[in-house]
Simulated assay, not measured.
Amino acid sequence: MDQVFEKLNAEIKRTNQKLTMRTAATNLYASVPTGIVVVALMWLLNTFNVW
Results as ranks from 00 to 15, higher is better:
1 M>K: 05
2 D>P: 09
2 D>G: 01
2 D>A: 05
3 Q>K: 00
3 Q>M: 07
3 Q>F: 02
4 V>N: 09
5 F>E: 07
5 F>L: 07
5 F>T: 07
5 F>Y: 03
5 F>S: 04
6 E>L: 05
6 E>M: 04
7 K>P: 06
7 K>T: 03
7 K>R: 06
8 L>K: 00
9 N>R: 00
10 A>S: 02
11 E>Y: 03
12 I>M: 00
12 I>Q: 06
12 I>K: 04
12 I>C: 00
12 I>W: 06
13 K>Q: 15
13 K>I: 06
13 K>T: 14
14 R>H: 05
14 R>N: 15
14 R>P: 08
14 R>G: 11
15 T>W: 00
15 T>D: 01
15 T>V: 01
16 N>P: 11
17 Q>D: 13
17 Q>G: 09
18 K>Q: 15
18 K>Y: 11
19 L>K: 02
19 L>V: 09
19 L>W: 05
20 T>P: 04
20 T>F: 10
21 M>A: 15
21 M>F: 14
21 M>S: 15
22 R>G: 07
23 T>Q: 07
23 T>N: 02
23 T>S: 05
24 A>F: 09
24 A>E: 13
25 A>Y: 02
25 A>L: 07
26 T>L: 14
26 T>C: 00
26 T>S: 12
28 L>G: 13
28 L>Q: 11
28 L>P: 08
28 L>F: 12
29 Y>E: 14
29 Y>I: 14
29 Y>G: 10
31 S>Y: 10
32 V>P: 07
32 V>I: 15
33 P>S: 09
34 T>E: 14
35 G>Q: 08
35 G>A: 01
35 G>R: 12
35 G>E: 11
36 I>P: 03
36 I>E: 06
37 V>R: 13
38 V>S: 11
38 V>L: 13
38 V>F: 07
38 V>Q: 13
38 V>A: 09
39 V>M: 01
39 V>T: 14
39 V>F: 10
39 V>W: 09
40 A>L: 08
40 A>D: 02
40 A>G: 03
41 L>M: 10
41 L>E: 02
42 M>H: 14
43 W>H: 12
43 W>R: 12
43 W>S: 04
44 L>G: 08
45 L>R: 05
46 N>M: 10
46 N>L: 03
46 N>C: 11
46 N>K: 15
47 T>I: 09
48 F>L: 12
48 F>Q: 05
48 F>V: 06
48 F>Y: 15
49 N>I: 02
49 N>W: 13
49 N>T: 12
50 V>P: 02
50 V>C: 06
50 V>A: 13
51 W>E: 12
51 W>Q: 14
